[in-house]
Amino acid sequence: MIRIAVANQKGGVGKTTTAINLATALAATGWRTLIIDLDPQGNASTGLGIKQSQRECSSYELLRGDAGVAECAIPTAVPRLDIVSATVDLSGAEIELIEYQDRLHRLQKALSGAEAGQWDICLIDCPPSLGMLTLNALIAAESLIVPLQCEFFALEGLSQLLTTVERVRERFNQKLSILGVALTMFDRRNRLTDQVSDDVREVLGPVVFDTVIPRNVRLSEAPSHGLPALIYDHRCAGSAAYIALAREMIDRLPEIRKAA
Score class of each variant (00 low, 15 high):
67 A>H: 14
91 S>M: 10
53 S>Q: 15
75 P>N: 05
48 L>A: 08
67 A>T: 12
69 V>R: 02
107 L>D: 12
121 I>N: 04
71 E>F: 02
96 E>W: 05
52 Q>W: 00
71 E>M: 06
55 R>N: 09
120 D>E: 09
131 G>V: 11
64 R>L: 15
72 C>D: 14
68 G>F: 10
133 L>D: 02
75 P>I: 07
142 E>C: 00
85 S>V: 01
46 T>N: 11
98 I>N: 00
105 H>D: 13
141 A>V: 04
121 I>T: 11
61 E>P: 06
62 L>W: 10
134 T>R: 04
69 V>A: 07
85 S>F: 00
56 E>V: 12
56 E>A: 12
59 S>Y: 06
145 I>W: 12
101 Q>V: 03
88 V>H: 03
68 G>Q: 11
111 L>M: 15
123 L>G: 06
92 G>C: 07
58 S>I: 04
91 S>F: 05
94 E>I: 00
96 E>R: 10
55 R>D: 10
106 R>I: 08
135 L>K: 13
128 P>A: 07
126 C>V: 07
143 S>W: 03
72 C>W: 15
132 M>F: 08
131 G>S: 12
50 I>L: 14
91 S>W: 01
113 G>N: 15
125 D>I: 13
96 E>G: 08
96 E>I: 07
120 D>L: 04
101 Q>E: 07
134 T>H: 02
83 I>K: 11
136 N>R: 08
112 S>P: 01
144 L>Q: 07
137 A>R: 03
66 D>M: 12
73 A>M: 03
82 D>M: 06
104 L>F: 13
48 L>T: 09
120 D>W: 05
119 W>C: 00
140 A>V: 10
103 R>M: 11
82 D>H: 15
127 P>A: 14
76 T>A: 13
120 D>I: 05
